[in-house]
Simulated scan of single mutants.
Amino acid sequence: MAKGSTYKEVPKFYEDFEIGETRMTAGRTITEADIVMHAMHSGDWMPHHTDAEWCKTQPFKKPIAHGNATFSISTGLTIQGEPLNPHGMSYGYDKIRYPHPVYAGDTITVEVKVISKKDHPKSPDHGIVTEAKTTFNQNGDCVCYAEHAIYVEKKKT
């Protein structure tokens, strides 16, 4: 850890991850400001997200959060309060889906579950740990699902 860093480190090697281990995040309420700020950052001003009058004519009746905003906020929730693992880093995400809409006022939480481990094909000193990240709203509906691949160092033998 760098001198003066405030990050708490908890080393976790590839071998330390167990398939099936699960944790839940704290909740976070999505706001209208979240939706507008994401539209500003992304340039996505589609009426589904920003035109309340147009949304009244649609089945969902009111503006919905951008799927990738929900994904981004969900990702942030999974690292809040978690210690830094100096032996792993994000390798990417797969199978991102948004099965239910998210509205301003919805509170989301994320379940993180280790679903697989495999050797890295080009780096014998590392493996890939895959976590399923399932985001739920306050009603228990899945609003985002993604699989997160983590590039993790193996213990030295």
Rank of each mutant, 00 (worst) to 15 (best):
M1S: 15
A2F: 12
K3I: 09
G4I: 04
Y7H: 13
K8S: 03
E9W: 05
E9F: 10
E9Q: 12
V10F: 03
P11C: 01
P11H: 03
K12V: 01
F13T: 00
Y14D: 00
E15G: 04
E15L: 03
F17V: 01
F17E: 02
I19P: 07
G20A: 06
M24G: 00
M24S: 09
T25Y: 10
A26D: 14
A26P: 00
R28G: 05
R28C: 05
R28A: 05
R28K: 11
T29Q: 10
I30C: 07
I30N: 07
A33I: 00
M37W: 03
M40F: 02
M40W: 00
H41S: 03
S42Q: 04
S42T: 15
G43R: 09
M46F: 12
P47E: 09
P47S: 11
H48F: 08
D51G: 08
D51I: 01
A52E: 10
A52S: 09
A52Q: 02
A52F: 06
E53W: 00
W54D: 10
C55I: 01
K56F: 03
K56C: 05
K56W: 01
Q58C: 05
Q58R: 11
F60P: 00
F60G: 00
K61H: 09
K62W: 00
K62M: 01
K62D: 00
P63R: 07
I64D: 02
G67C: 14
G67N: 14
T70M: 12
T70E: 10
F71T: 14
G76D: 10
G76I: 12
G76F: 10
L77E: 11
T78P: 07
Q80K: 15
L84N: 05
L84H: 12
N85Y: 09
G88A: 15
G88R: 09
M89E: 08
G92W: 04
G92K: 09
K95T: 08
K95D: 14
I96V: 15
I96E: 06
R97Q: 13
Y98N: 13
H100A: 15
H100L: 05
P101G: 02
V102C: 09
V102W: 07
Y103I: 00
G105I: 09
G105S: 11
D106K: 02
D106L: 03
T107H: 10
I108N: 04
I108H: 05
T109I: 04
V110T: 13
E111M: 12
V112Q: 09
K113C: 04
S116G: 13
K118W: 03
K118C: 07
D119C: 01
H120C: 08
K122S: 14
S123W: 02
S123R: 13
P124Y: 09
I128T: 06
I128F: 09
I128N: 11
V129A: 05
E131S: 07
E131K: 12
A132S: 13
A132F: 01
K133R: 14
T134E: 07
T134G: 02
T134V: 11
F136N: 06
N137Q: 04
N137M: 06
G140P: 06
D141I: 06
V143I: 12
C144K: 12
Y145K: 13
Y145E: 13
E147N: 11
E147R: 12
H148S: 15
H148Y: 15
A149I: 00
E153V: 12
E153C: 07
E153L: 15
E153G: 02
K154G: 10
K154Y: 08
K156R: 14
T157L: 11
